[in-house]
Nucleic acid binder design. Structure first.
Lengths: 223, 223
DNA sequence: AGGAATTTTTATAAATTTATTATATAGCAA
DNA sequence: TTGCTATATAATAAATTTATAAAAATTCCT
């Protein structure tokens, strides 16, 4: 799971990131422009978005990414006074808000709730695709009852593919999501790992489900 | 067994902790925020929770941890008069309550009752896993009739593993539970003791039941 | 206090994962 | 088909994580 946290108060940003890092992968932005750029990669499972940020405010960020067709759940952070009503108004789209200051535990709880609601996290913590079942906590996979061991990176790769089955993912998107923006690895690693993953799934007959879109990236067939 | 006691009256908190410490490991919190943070680690067998505490009251604490899916039994402490509170407490997923002031013996008895009900403690005060039997009082283990001596830390480690058989425990969770939050030991100690424990159980054939989940932690196989 | 047992630290070995690199193969355009 | 480019594959190197052993420090007993 990968989050994006947007907050212009740097100490606060830092502490939120710290707090969430033991459970999730976390990207951060301190202004609306960076936030938009990162959000547009479409690699996050939840965005935590301060309303009052420089350059482009939180509402505008949300609106822009929604116009772009992204359905990632957004959790707004808002000061108690002024904007609360407006935020409430936005609540319709499966999003949520949290009034500052807030408790660490509540932030985590609400993020998890959004993940559950959006289907990224089923109640029993598993993700499914045809006969494949990702056992969230155990990092391995059941394929038609049989267990296959995946490494951490292989697991995240498969998770990302399943979450986006039926849509093409560019190699850059995959790289950003699984290896992170700040990774200093080359993007060729995506091909290598795609190969590893295919090889592990091949005996179970899933090899052909991962399609190569030449010049673009990869796609997992719709179920 | 590890308890969390939440009470803002410090002398009372102190005396409760004192009282319980000869039988259990005890963590303490004096306000709702600390309570939530500690509870979220999910390492306690019972939480003793005063209703009237600063910042976030007991009900809110309970609600938050229940929303998060934690099933740890909660024993509410509540003032004598507020009948309404009792009902509310039990409605919101509390498991038992105790009216202040109370007798030491009664508190202990109710905690033990909760432990039994939740399955942490069988009626005869032992914990079992396949052929292994943890004799609560004495710090050693019967494996298929034969006795093996464990040290205190080894015992708590095995106890924690058995209580969570079938689910992965991160090294951090294990560390927090067995060594405590305030410990100034390094987390590598977990690996070392896991090794000690495996070595002691190996002759009895349990070595392979403790699985290493690389990059995450450890897991004891389901029975 | 002295000695034994336990816990912790530290160093090294072993296992496994991740990253690099080189080469083979496949798809596509002219 | 030929030649070019992108991807697949394989082999190897590097980095990371865990297991193990053993020494050092601490605690626990009489």
């Amino acid at each position: 799971m990968r989050l994006l946290v947007v907050e212009d108060n740097l100490p606060l940003l830092e502490s939120i990131v710290q707090l969430l890092s033991d459970e999730f992968e976390v990207d951060q932005a301190a202004n609306g422009e960076d936030a938009l750029f990162l959000a547009m990669q479409n690699i996050h499972d939840v965005i935590v978005l301060d309303v009052m940020i420089p350059e482009i405010d939180g509402f505008e960020v949300l609106q822009t990414i929604r116009n772009d067709g992204l359905k990632v759940p957004v959790l707004f952070l808002t000061a108690r006074d002024s904007l609360e009503d407006r935020v409430k108004g936005l609540d319709s789209g499966g999003d949520d808000y949290l009034v500052k200051p807030f408790q660490a535990a509540e932030l985590k709880a609400r993020i998890r709730a959004l993940l559950r609601r959006s289907g990224s996290l089923t109640t029993n913590q598993t993700i499914q695709y045809r006969g494949i079942e990702l056992l969230g906590k155990e990092r391995d996979v059941t394929v038609g009852g049989e267990r296959i061991k995946l490494t951490a990176k292989q697991y995240e790769l498969l998770e990302f593919l399943i979450q986006n089955k039926g849509t093409i993912l560019t190699k850059e998107q995959i790289y950003d999501r699984v290896w992170g923006f700040d990774s200093d690895t080359t993007i060729a690693i995506v091909e290598v790992f795609m190969h590893h993953l295919r090889k592990k799934l091949e005996p179970s007959g899933y090899h052909s489900d991962i399609k190569t879109i030449r010049g673009v990236g990869y796609m997992l067939n719709e179920e």
